[in-house]
């Protein structure tokens, strides 16, 4: 029996060896292309990676310091900015696309090579090609960033998942999370004027200081959001927490980034529930969650890594 089996195997081998010479290239090519085309078992998004990294940071920070006090928190901004600037300094001499990310729980202050100053809200990121500030001033962004663009003849362009913003030298705020397409891109101009255009259509507008417009990628229109208090959109810079008729989901996303914690929301709560919140000074997270729960008739409980919100 045994010999029989191995005979067949040997025959098979010989048989395929002849074909081998013909098919070798195709087989090799198939193998080479396989990792590029074939999907992995798990799909992992950039925000999955950032969340996982934030969790590791949370655990590794614990050992060193408790960052409860205000001064400690302010110090951590500087530390973050210093690390980011260091990364930038190294990055500049390297080729390839460079990325700068503001960690969860922190606001990062970044000065780019062209002299422009960026304030990046927690979890936001930018990336740009080599020779930024030398041959071009184009960046891509995700999240919420306040820009103070250094005046220059080279236009500064910012591309988000939904839109494009082009300026020469002004200051403005952009909020654009690719994970929240319903919120599109929100642009608030503080000084000067800015060209605001859609990514997929040819629509574009010029926005003057003191105005806020939202590009809505679903309806493909610009929406005017001129509230009497347009500085609400830049309030996050002074740690003021403000939400204006935002969905619970996007509020929770923001709280997770700002407080660097995990908040689990029960499926039973409709995610499109909207509400407005305004805190003029820094408040502990449980105060915020308590207010949300009271207004919306929900319950919140502590978990090992954060909080869970459930219906009453």
């Amino acid at each position: 029996m045994k010999t029989n089996k191995s005979n067949i195997k040997a025959e098979n081998r010989n048989h395929s060896y002849n074909e081998l010479t013909d098919n070798k290239d195709e087989f090799e090519k198939l193998l080479d292309d396989f990792p590029k085309i074939s999907q992995n078992d798990l799909s992992i998004s950039n925000s999955d990676i950032e969340k996982a990294l934030a969790k590791v940071h949370r655990q590794t920070y614990k050992e060193s310091t408790e960052r409860e006090s205000n001064t400690a928190r302010i110090f951590s901004y500087f530390a973050a900015a210093a690390i980011i600037l260091l990364g930038f300094g190294i990055g500049y001499y390297n080729f390839g696309i460079k990325t700068i990310t503001a960690p969860f729980g922190e606001i990062a202050h970044v000065t780019l090579n062209d002299g422009s100053v960026l304030e990046m809200n927690s979890g936001s990121s930018i990336n740009y090609r080599p020779f930024f500030g030398v041959f071009h001033r184009n960046i891509q962004m995700e999240g919420e960033i306040f820009f103070n663009i250094y005046p220059s003849d080279t236009p500064f362009t910012i591309t988000t998942s939904f839109s494009k913003v082009k300026v020469l030298g002004t200051s403005f705020n952009i909020r654009s999370w690719s994970t929240e397409p319903e919120n599109g891109t929100l642009l608030t101009v503080v000084s000067g004027s800015v060209e605001f255009s859609a990514l997929d259509t040819s629509q574009s507008i010029i926005l003057e200081a003191g105005n806020t417009q939202k590009w809505n990628p679903f309806n493909e229109i610009f929406e005017n959001l001129n509230y009497s208090i347009s500085d609400r959109y830049t309030a996050w810079r002074s740690n003021i927490l403000t939400f204006n008729n935002q969905s619970l989901r996007s509020i929770i996303n923001q709280l997770e980034r700002t407080y660097n914690i995990e908040i689990e929301v029960s499926d039973k709560i409709p995610s499109h529930t909207q509400l407005s919140l305004l805190y003029m000074e820094e408040v502990p997270i449980d105060v915020v969650l308590n207010d949300i729960s009271t207004v919306k008739g929900l319950n919140f409980t502590r978990t090992s890594t954060g909080y869970r919100i459930t219906p009453k």
Binding site: N12, R13, S16, E19, L20, N23, E26, F27, L30, L31
Partner: peptide
């Protein structure tokens, strides 16, 4: 894998 591939091709 090569064996299976050539078998399949044939």
């Amino acid at each position: 894998l090569r064996l299976k591939f050539t078998d399949y091709q044939t």
